[in-house]
Computed example of a mutant assay.
Amino acid sequence: MDKVWLITGCSTGFGRELAKLVLKQGYKAVVTSRNTDDVIDIVAPYPGTAIALPLDVTKQSDINAVVTQALQKFNRIDVLVNNAGIGYFGAIEESEEEEVRRMFEINFWGLAHVTKAILPVMRKQRSGHIINISSVGGLVAFPALGFYNATKFAVTAYSEALAKETAHLGIKITTVAPSGFRTDWAGRSAKDSALTIDDYAPTAGANKNTVRGYSGSQKGDPVRAAKAIVNVVESENPPLLLLLGSAALRNAKNKLAALQRDFDDWENVTKGADYPEGE
């Protein structure tokens, strides 16, 4: 139980429940949020094993300060959970570049910059586990979420490459891909595009309304999700990709089946793009 966790985005949702759980189970934790007032209640009962630090993942100075203070407090970092993220609803054509770029800065570049700051620590230790919170939307794309999907597809690909680069150093990587959970993601944590184009009402508009409509009543339980993540970290052979939630499993399996059909149906065309044998 001497592992030190560093968790981003702990004010709500997965980050909050995970921070509470790891501290309750006896781990040490660096609990971060843009405003530490939002997480003081989490760390207050654990003065010896927890520290709350301000972190905006889009600011390199914040990232550097968190890593420095974490090491000063605990001397090591064993588990990094990149949880900070936001959502955005809008058809591709409706979406505002400024908002999309902001989402990429948080969901992808923020995650990448925090990871890059932690990797030297884990390389020196020759051990560590990085948990990147992606989404089933990092495997399957949905109307009204195209640019959000793009950030999460990027996280999934980045994590897979990183896992292949770091395995020999004792550093494990797991991408977590949840479906709908009762967090604030589909509530105030996600913006809508300012522009609405009527032609997209049956696709992007309908899906946005569906997702917004079930905010707060999703099947996914953040407390159970936190327990699943702890189980992964405690496992000897953690998965590269962990789906969370029955909807995530269903959508991922449907995507696999659709890909397999296309691969099989177009196999001859695919192979025909190579030079003939012997050339």
Results as ranks from 00 to 15, higher is better:
Lys172Trp: 07
Asp38Tyr: 07
Phe181Arg: 11
Lys271Leu: 07
Ala157Thr: 08
Ala226Glu: 01
Phe147Ser: 15
Phe108Ile: 12
Thr49Ala: 12
Ile173Met: 02
Arg16Phe: 05
Ala84Arg: 00
Val31Asn: 09
Gly205Pro: 03
Ala177Lys: 13
Ile86Ala: 14
Lys24Cys: 06
Lys253Arg: 14
Leu162Gln: 02
Gly138Phe: 02
Leu195Lys: 15
Trp5Gly: 04
Ile63Tyr: 00
Ala186Gly: 06
Thr166Gly: 10
Ile7Met: 01
Gln260Met: 11
Thr175Ser: 11
Cys10Val: 01
Val100Gln: 13
Asn82Asp: 07
Pro54Arg: 03
Leu243Phe: 06
Gln25Ser: 11
Gln218Ala: 12
Lys191Gly: 15
Ala248His: 08
Gly85Tyr: 08
Lys255Trp: 10
Lys172Leu: 06
Glu96Lys: 06
Asn64Gly: 08
Arg16Asn: 12
Thr49Glu: 09
Ser61Glu: 13
Lys255Gly: 07
Ile42Tyr: 06
Ile229Glu: 08
Ile86Gly: 14
Gln218Ser: 11
Gln125Asn: 03
Leu18Ile: 05
Tyr46Gly: 00
Lys124Asp: 10
Asp264Glu: 12
Asp184Trp: 03
Leu6Phe: 02
Ile229Pro: 08
Asn107Lys: 04
Ile63Ser: 00
Gly87Val: 06
Asp221His: 05
Pro45Gln: 07
Val114Thr: 04
Asn107Ser: 05
Arg101Ile: 13
Ser217Pro: 04
Phe14Val: 06
Ala194Trp: 09
Glu99Ala: 15
Leu169Phe: 11
Phe153Asp: 00
Gly278Cys: 03
Ala52Val: 10
Lys253Ile: 15
Thr166Asp: 02
Asn254Thr: 10
Leu111Thr: 10
Ile173Arg: 04
Tyr88Phe: 15
Asp274Arg: 13
Tyr275Gln: 12
Pro276Gln: 10
Thr68Phe: 09
Asn83Phe: 09
Tyr148Gln: 01
Gly87Met: 05
Val66Thr: 11
Thr203Ala: 13
Pro239Glu: 05
Gln60Cys: 07
Ile42Cys: 05
Gly128Glu: 00
